[in-house]
Write a protein that binds this DNA or RNA. Structure first.
Length: 556
DNA sequence: TTAGGGTTAG
């Protein structure tokens, strides 16, 4: 932002310039100005500086903290502004460190403006114990009767699933407003208690847009689109959020025709609504449609944000188009987007691996300031996709060494990789790590990966023993994989036993009958084959014939 | 100062 000359030696001439700042670079120039003009002790100006820093990109708390540190006697207002900036942009640890510093360095008590932002920071990551500490401190400071405080606490307990605590705060509030009622209702929805949410909704003395939209969202979350649409229709005035919530609901339910129709009915659209439509197409495996929507936006001269670009990259990854991938990358570079942001960086890596440019993906991956779980998984999966199983396993170990904790998805990715690459010992070691080091309960999918892995290497008995240790009921995925392994190894006896279990849980899946039939056929047990085919006909089951591109295009 | 909509990996 170009600086105009400042005429007066006062904060009033700097303030308008400050309000126009969008990036940290702009703020850097203004800060120089503040120092140069000797306005460093101006509480009003510094407060504005801190809150604008908190909203600027890239987010950063060191800079506003430095401006704050230069103030010799900051008042409570300034402390609270800095606290809010931390709560919005720093880790919870840094927020608490600032809170301790405030208690230590100032002789002021935190007030009713200090606590809501701290509580909100705890709600954001469902940090129940930390939030309870803040709640206790707020009680000691005598701020608990405040409406903002109460609403923050209701929201916090609701988001942490502690609905009884939320109710207690709500019941004890001397004055409730729309925010506290809505937070209470959203808490019920978060805990899955639709009836209680509905009751709260009906009992509310006054509703606003946020209330109505929270109710729609809650119904969408539980897959009750009919009720969600009914509430939407009952709303006195529908805003862009109501439409977008419903678009997301239809997309989640796989009804993209309804989502598109809702989108077309919107009186006005914002970036979030465009993003909801695009990601809907991506999630429903319609990348071409997503790219078309991007084209529509492009034609309207709208500048996409990072959310939209991530969806576009995901669509491109599904299409596998290296040409589009190159275009997107150059567009992102020229548009001054922040490629270091976790979602953007991970999507870039994923897109490049799936569009065939492993070298580019690896370069982007290594250049990331910090690699998170998703980018590691994208890269591991990319290596698997390109038949580089051993490197994928090595990367998985590097991820753990870097202190990134693998989750369920990460274990599925790496176990699938081991299975594809035939890395039996590695797979078994990683499966043990999952249960022993990380104390995680493997899902049926993880068992299915292990069965595939053991089965492919001829260890069908070990696969069977593993499936028997599964704590859940007979699971079609894992047992189906075991039947496949029996066929591969020609184990008729075990195959019969496994098939019996599968026929119980999936009596109408022809695939299981066909697999067993193939096992019999390969053992020349034609009488059994014929019996099994009779059973299939009795049940009216037919296997849909498999068809490959080669078969369908080869002349007979 | 508090409550509502969209993003990534299996």
């Amino acid at each position: 932002m170009p600086l105009r000359p400042v005429s007066a030696n006062s904060s009033s001439s700097i303030l308008p310039l400050l309000k126009g700042c969008k990036t940290i670079r702009d703020l850097n120039q203004i800060h120089t100005h503040i120092i140069h003009r000797g306005c460093e002790q101006d509480h009003h100006l510094i407060a504005h500086f801190i809150s604008i820093c908190a909203a600027a990109q890239p987010a950063n708390v060191r800079y506003p903290t430095a401006a704050f540190n230069a103030v010799t006697t900051p008042n409570i207002y300034l402390w609270n502004i800095l606290m809010k900036a931390h709560c919005e942009n720093a880790s919870l640890g840094e927020c608490f460190a600032l809170f301790s510093r405030m208690r230590r360095e100032s002789n002021m008590l935190p007030d009713k403006y200090t606590f809501p932002s701290l509580i909100k920071a705890c709600s954001g990551i469902s940090a129940l114990r930390e939030g309870q500490v803040v709640h206790a401190a707020a009680v000691r400071c005598g701020t608990e009767g405040d409406a903002y405080m109460g609403s923050s606490l209701i929201d916090f307990y609701g988001k942490c699933g502690e609905i009884e605590c939320a109710r207690k705060v709500f019941a004890e509030m001397p004055v409730r407003n729309e925010v506290s009622w809505t937070a209470m209702m959203a808490g019920c929805l978060n805990c899955g208690d639709i009836e209680a949410a509905r009751k709260t909704f009906d009992e509310m003395p006054k509703k606003n847009d946020v209330t109505w939209n929270a109710m729609i969202k809650g119904l969408v979350k539980f897959g009750d689109l009919v009720s969600a649409k009914k509430v939407f229709d009952e709303m006195p005035v529908r805003d862009v959020v109501s439409f977008t919530t419903l678009i997301g609901g239809y997309a989640k339910a796989g009804d993209m025709a309804a989502a598109r129709s809702m989108f077309d009915q919107m009186p006005s659209k914002d970036l979030v609504s465009w993003s909801a439509l695009m990601s809907g197409y991506v999630q429903n495996g319609k990348p071409g449609e997503a790219v078309k929507v991007f084209g529509e936006m492009w034609a309207m001269n709208l500048k996409p944000d990072e959310f939209i670009l991530v969806s576009l990259m995901s669509a491109c990854a599904q299409l596998g188009s290296s040409e589009l991938a190159r275009w997107i990358e150059s567009y992102i570079r020229e548009g001054c987007y922040d490629t270091a942001r976790a979602h953007v960086a991970a999507a870039l890596v994923d897109m490049n691996t799936k569009c065939g440019d492993m070298a580019r993906a690896a370069k982007l991956f290594e250049e990331m300031p910090q690699r998170d779980l998703v980018s590691y998984c994208s890269m591991i999966q990319g290596l698997c996709l390109h038949g580089r199983g051993a490197e994928a396993v090595a990367l998985f170990y590097r991820m753990m060494d870097e202190g990134v904790r693998p989750d369920n998805v990460a274990f599925t990715v790496i176990l699938t990789t081991c299975s594809h690459a035939g890395l039996v010992d590695e797979g078994c070691r990683i499966f043990d790590l999952m249960t022993e080091k990380y104390a995680m309960r493997p899902s049926p999918d993880h068992y299915a990966c292990m069965v595939n892995l053991l089965g492919k290497s001829g260890r069908v008995k070990a696969a069977y023993e593993l499936v028997q240790t599964m704590p859940m009921e007979t699971h079609a995925g894992a047992w189906g994989a075991l039947l496949g392994a029996c066929r591969l190894q020609g184990d008729v006896e075990l195959g019969e036993m496994v098939a019996r279990r599968l026929f119980e849980v999936e009596p109408r899946n022809p695939g299981n009958y066909v697999l067993l039939s193939n096992i019999y056929a390969e053992a020349d047990r034609w009488l059994n084959v014929s019996d099994l085919r009779d059973r299939m006909s009795e049940k009216g089951l037919r296997k849909i014939p498999g068809c490959s591109y080669l078969e369908s295009t080869t002349p007979a």
